[in-house]
Amino acid sequence: MADRTPAPDTPELRARWGGFAWTPENKTTADWHIAKYPEGRQRSAVMPLLDLAQRQVGAETDTQGWLPLPVIEYVAKYLGMPVIRVLEVASFYFMYNLKPVGKFHVQVCGTTPCMLRGSDDIMAACKKRGMVKGGVSADGLWTLTEVECMGNCATAPMVQINDDNYEDLTPERLGAVLDALERGETPKAGTQEPGRHTSEPAGGPTTLKDMVSANHDYRGEW
């Protein structure tokens, strides 16, 4: 499991992030999230607010974003809750980065279905491009993390890069996706298998075949 300890509380960290505050748009969004919950229950909005804060940090640093301790404290103060409760949430969920990440956070699934379908090769391909597990690559673009199941077993192997999943990967297909990202393009998210749309069976439907083109009433047939 990746190291989930928060980035150390140094004077430099305080100097850089001590003045963190919502941008006007994010403040509107934050208040909108808080308004979803009844009066006095505003701490229920802690998860969307942490995500929002992480994205704002990401926008400021041109990365996927992460949560420095002063930012966590800011969110705690904004919701009027003890900071330890916010840190509990931030350290529990994997989607919150507690250490700086690169522009693209490549999360390779290594759980059994992906592993059987070649996630080891995907991982090796990532490392070959200079990515390091749990760290930022030299060019500042990539952070590599191995994660547990992301629920895309039907289209294994897969990686998640920032907000998008890329599925049905081979080292070559992954290479194409990463190249496109590096060039600043937005590659097509989802399955990379030509001719496949989402997670339908690879060789065409195997069940309910009569329903492919039109609705079919099976009720009399069993």
Partner: peptide, 19 residues
């Protein structure tokens, strides 16, 4: 006084005070 919490999860769960 909310100061003790359980950080991380699963096997890595740790009881600590903030910082």
């Amino acid at each position: 006084v909310d100061e003790i919490g359980a950080l991380y999860r699963g096997e890595d769960m740790q009881i600590t005070t903030y910082l």
